[in-house]
Computed example of a mutant assay.
Amino acid sequence: MAYGENRIIRVIKGRRPRVVVIGGGTGLPVILNALKDQNAEITAIVTVSDDGGSSGSIRNFINVVPPGDIRNVLVSLSDLSKEGKDIFQYRFDSSDSFFSGHAIGNLIIAALNEMHGNIFEAVQILSKMMHVDGHVFPASNEPLTLNAEFVDGTTQAGETEITALDKQIKRVWVTDTDSDDEPKAVLPVLAAIMQADAVVLGPGSLFTSILPNLMISNLGQAVRETKAEVIYICNIMTQQGETDHFSDADHVRVINEHLGGHYINTALVNGAKIDMSEFHPEDYDAYLEPVRNDFAGLREQECRVITDDFIDQRHGLVFHDGKKVGKEIINLAFEAMSRRRMDED
């Protein structure tokens, strides 16, 4: 069921719909896999401000953009055999003081970055080696540090430290980890956004996976200026230390506030009830409750809303249903292609 204007779906021949997905975290590969099955021309723009886990440890030893999200995105778009993907994803479980807990793919990305001098070129080379169907672009060529101001006026730097405080976040921004230079995205990132039919934000942690990308000044400006349909995939569950008690409208509002206007064109929100009897909170480190619907609040954000049963709940875990979400994105991309062609005629 869709709230808002009727959608007209046209099949447009000549090229695949161009879809740019911006974000990070575990939700991103689910959407990328679905879009790959829909035969979209995909560009994934991946967060580079993570400082936890294997990525954070490697970042402490080697001056490199955190590789974890990049690794998962490469695998999701790769046409390698299952065995090849499993090797790339393998995480050491030995007691070795350095290798324990590290994924092989993270080490390969760090090595290529060192060999070629920048993470963007390293990822493009690895994309060819892994037969990636699409493009994988780090949001920045340099490691970035996430900064937050809380509602109480205090500030904190570092993703792990920000979420550990479990305080309500007012706003976030990013800084270059190693210099005073203003963080910038490289030209291929900007070109992909400007040429896209659909730009997708999420799903993923609002303040630590989505907004860090948009706070890179020229990347955020490209999202504001693109003629693509800007789509937000709202999270299914709230996240402790980030979005406690948030509604779907709260998520959209925060993104629009950081962008400085009403730039979300369409929000995809779950309208199905989650079976909490099958939900096991101990399986999650940071999830609290289902994100509640606030359609009046969404109307205030001036975005079209598409609501459906977007959940895939299995064995007490809750995910987005990639197939359903992917189909909605492709439909919206085709609409944007139609509008662009009519504008050009």
Rank of each mutant, 00 (worst) to 15 (best):
E5Q: 14
N6L: 07
I8H: 08
I8P: 10
K13R: 04
G14Y: 01
G14L: 05
T26A: 07
P29V: 00
L32E: 05
A34L: 02
D37V: 01
I45R: 00
V48S: 06
N60I: 00
N63D: 15
V64K: 08
I70C: 10
L74Y: 00
S76Q: 03
L77C: 08
S78K: 09
D79R: 12
S81W: 05
I87A: 08
Y90Q: 11
Y90I: 05
F92H: 13
S94G: 09
G101R: 10
A111Y: 00
I119F: 02
E121V: 12
M130A: 01
M130V: 02
H135E: 14
V136T: 06
F137V: 08
A139M: 12
A139Q: 09
V151E: 13
G158D: 11
A164R: 12
L165C: 06
Q168V: 11
R171G: 12
V174A: 06
T175V: 07
T175C: 06
T177C: 04
E182M: 02
V186C: 04
P188D: 00
V189H: 04
M194D: 13
M194I: 07
V200R: 03
L201H: 08
G202M: 12
I210K: 02
M215P: 04
M215W: 03
S217H: 01
G220H: 03
E225I: 02
T226V: 07
A228Y: 09
V230D: 04
M237N: 07
H245R: 10
H245Y: 15
F246D: 04
D248G: 11
V252T: 07
R253A: 15
V254M: 15
G260I: 11
H262V: 02
Y263K: 04
N265I: 13
A267L: 08
G271A: 14
K273R: 07
F279D: 04
P281F: 15
E282C: 04
E289R: 13
R292E: 13
R292K: 15
D294H: 13
D294L: 11
D294M: 08
R299E: 12
I306H: 11
D312F: 07
L317W: 11
D321G: 06
E328R: 12
R339A: 12
R339K: 14
R340P: 03
D345W: 07
